[in-house]
Design a protein around this nucleic acid. Structure first.
Length: 120
DNA sequence: CCATTGACGGGCG
DNA sequence: GCGCCCGCCAATG
């Protein structure tokens, strides 16, 4: 595991593992839950750098519902594919201008449970 | 050391 | 909705 200077990766990756089937979270939301407000980019870096093979990484999208992976990348197709297969719906053109319908699918975590997980 | 670059977010016009 | 700008900050050249 690559290690960032102040390593918040464990917390972030754990939170990702909690996102339920058919739901999505935003990078900023994960940052908030991890106690790192305003650090959405750190979450993105963490997912890019670490091995996410065992995680539902595809459930992490931008706050506005956009899929933030590089346009045309295999990973982007994979993410869209997986979300669709989980029943996640999109606004606009489902192929090109795809935006997840956040109001329907955004994860609403049990905040009490989250606090417990990280020593509340 | 400085500049640019991101799997981002939010405010404003 | 869209573009612009700013805050964020580790990594990269």
């Amino acid at each position: 595991m690559k290690r960032l200077r102040t390593d918040h990766s464990h917390k972030i990756l754990h939170l990702v593992s909690l996102v339920p089937y058919g739901c999505v979270v935003s990078y900023g939301q994960l940052a908030d839950l991890a106690g790192l407000p305003g650090r959405a980019r750190l979450v993105g870096r963490t997912l890019r750098v670490h091995n996410t093979e065992q995680l539902p990484w595809h459930r992490v999208v931008a706050a506005n519902g956009r899929l933030s992976l590089p346009k045309g990348s295999p990973a982007l197709n994979e993410q869209r594919q997986r979300l669709i297969s989980e029943g996640v719906t999109f606004k606009g053109n489902a192929i090109t201008g795809a935006c997840v319908a956040m109001t329907k699918h955004q994860w609403q975590p049990d905040l009490g449970a989250i606090l417990m997980l990280f020593d509340g």
